[in-house]
Simulated assay, not measured.
Amino acid sequence: MTVRAIDARRAAVLGSPIAHSLSPVLHRAAYRELGLADWSYDRFEVDEESLTGFLDGLGPEWGGLSLTMPLKRAVIPLLDGVTETAASVEAVNTVVFAEDGRRTGDNTDIPGMVAALRERGIEQVDSAAILGAGATASSALAALARICTGEVVAYVRSAERAAEMRQWGERLGVEVRTADWADAAEALRAPLVIATTPAGTTDALAGAVPERPATLFDVLYDPWPTDLAARWSAYGGAVVGGLDLLVHQAVLQVEQMTGRAPAPLDVMRKAGEHALAAR
């Protein structure tokens, strides 16, 4: 049966650049599995300057938006409210539209990280290390606030970044110590290492992976595996990848935007793996 255009529901991912995003692949796979033939999911190149105009032009058919850089903080003043999770890191990656038009921002990266780790049996750690100090690092700290009982050491490149990470730690209730990036090889001996840096940044650390590594969470998914993740796996360590994070946070987005739960995690992961293999 053909669905009338007026009954169609829409969602999309926004960001700049956006052409690389796997979100359409994951969300569309979920819609197919859930039988949501009236839902569509697209991608739009939107920067901070054009965000307000884009949001103001949306009609009542819109159910939600996924946001990537550079919009995760820029969107906050344009919303009617944000969840406690999003407020804790001042970053929104999910916007859900209510029937009355209210816009609510959430952050599914944080529970997505926790869920990805739990899927690999990581329920709690007594210490951890973070490589990097950008927006993803603050989300990693928020995730560690839920599972880490002790100190988190953040390896950064500047005093300014170090101060920011300590401030985030205080805000999130995490004991944070900062160290210079030159000593980042020391991080690899932690029970849990979360790499939040851009592609290529950790390649030089691959040679420093210990003989019996614990768990690495590398947030990258393309290219994959990173040199660090490949060496980690070769030495028998557990590796959680960026696709794991992307899928788990997308599951939560699908559930919030469509009101259907549970979203099909395995189907979405397989769709993502297939799309990456085709690149």
Rank of each mutant, 00 (worst) to 15 (best):
L65D: 12
R260N: 14
D222W: 07
A19W: 00
W224A: 11
N107W: 00
R189C: 05
G237P: 04
A91H: 09
V25W: 01
A261I: 05
Y221H: 09
G236W: 01
A5W: 01
G63E: 03
A214M: 09
R103L: 12
S16A: 15
G59F: 03
E48I: 07
F217A: 12
A250P: 01
V95F: 04
A154Q: 06
D222T: 12
W224M: 09
E45I: 04
A135H: 08
S40Y: 05
L51V: 07
R269A: 06
R157M: 07
A128E: 09
A12N: 12
V219S: 05
L117S: 09
Y41R: 11
A135I: 10
W232K: 04
M268I: 07
D222V: 11
A184C: 06
T52L: 10
V125W: 01
L172V: 11
F217Y: 13
P223I: 14
L228H: 10
V219R: 04
P262K: 15
Y31Q: 05
G15D: 03
G112W: 00
D47Q: 10
N107D: 04
D7T: 09
R32D: 15
T149G: 09
W62G: 11
W62Y: 08
E164Q: 14
L246E: 12
A12T: 09
I6T: 13
A8F: 08
G121M: 06
A133L: 01
V3S: 08
W39R: 14
R120M: 10
V152F: 03
D106L: 03
V152R: 08
Q167H: 12
G101C: 06
E49K: 12
V13A: 06
A87D: 14
T258R: 02
A8E: 11
A162R: 10
V114C: 03
I76K: 03
D80M: 11
I110P: 02
D180A: 15
L243E: 13
V176I: 13
V25N: 01
T104W: 08
A185I: 06
Y31W: 07
V176G: 03
R9P: 05
F217V: 13
A185R: 12
L22I: 14
E170W: 05
G59W: 06
Y31C: 08
V152M: 07
L216Y: 08
D222G: 10
E123P: 02
G132W: 02
E99K: 15
L71S: 02
P60A: 15
D56R: 14
L252Q: 10
L36D: 12
G132H: 02
R73G: 12
V219L: 15
A115E: 05
S23K: 07
E164P: 00
A133R: 04
E90C: 08
Y41E: 10
W62S: 11
D266Y: 08
V13W: 00
P111E: 00
E175H: 10
T258M: 04
L192W: 02
G81T: 09
A37K: 14
G150F: 00
A98H: 12
R166Q: 12
R279S: 11
G259T: 12
H20V: 10
A263P: 04
M1Q: 14
A98C: 03
